[in-house]
Computed example of a mutant assay.
Amino acid sequence: MTNPADKYADEALRIDPVKMRSDADLVRGRFWDKLRASLSRLPFAQKLIAARYAATDPATPVRDKAVLLGALAYFIMPLDAIPDFVSLLGFTDDLGVLLLALRTASGAIRPEHHAKAREWLDGGPLATADPDEVARGRVIDHE
């Protein structure tokens, strides 16, 4: 005997190529803008992005660069003290590490880093480090 719910499940799982194409166009056209807009509402997003700019700035002192890069790497790592997928708590350890790093290296995060972060959050491109600076060993991270 078949379960009546199976009929509805089969209907729900049917792939509609027109809808799929429409969804793909929507994702291609608006995903990054939506993500950027969502990030801009996080209270620490600008500080986090400014820290990334400071960490890749050749003028940032090595000690501050190391602190910022360590905290940013911890933020990115999939495994940490409290896994990120844990509801509501997953990013608390990341936030704690980031806030401590931001406090420790606060003098290295200059107004131009905050301006670049704000520009990116407002829709500007994410600047990359100059490859020549990287080759000279003055920048640790680049894209």
Rank of each mutant, 00 (worst) to 15 (best):
R138W: 10
M77Y: 15
L69P: 05
S40G: 08
P58A: 00
A135F: 13
D122W: 01
S38W: 09
P4K: 03
A73R: 15
P4C: 06
D6M: 08
P43I: 09
K19N: 11
D57R: 01
V86P: 03
V18A: 14
G123R: 02
I140S: 15
V62P: 03
G124E: 06
D16P: 04
Q46V: 01
A101E: 02
V86K: 07
V27A: 10
L95M: 09
L72Y: 06
R110S: 01
G96A: 08
Y53Q: 00
D84M: 13
L69V: 14
L26M: 13
F85V: 12
L26S: 14
L35T: 11
L42D: 10
R136T: 14
Q46I: 01
K47E: 13
A71H: 07
D6T: 05
S40T: 07
A50I: 02
P43Q: 13
K34D: 13
R103T: 11
D10Q: 12
A135V: 12
V67C: 07
V134H: 12
R41G: 07
T2P: 12
H142Y: 15
A9N: 12
Y8I: 14
A108I: 02
D16R: 05
F31S: 13
A24P: 08
R52Q: 11
D25Q: 13
D64A: 11
E11P: 06
F44C: 10
A105T: 02
L69H: 12
A55L: 04
Y74E: 07
A45D: 03
D25T: 11
R36F: 00
H142N: 15
G70W: 07
R110M: 01
A12Y: 08
A9E: 15
A73P: 09
A101H: 05
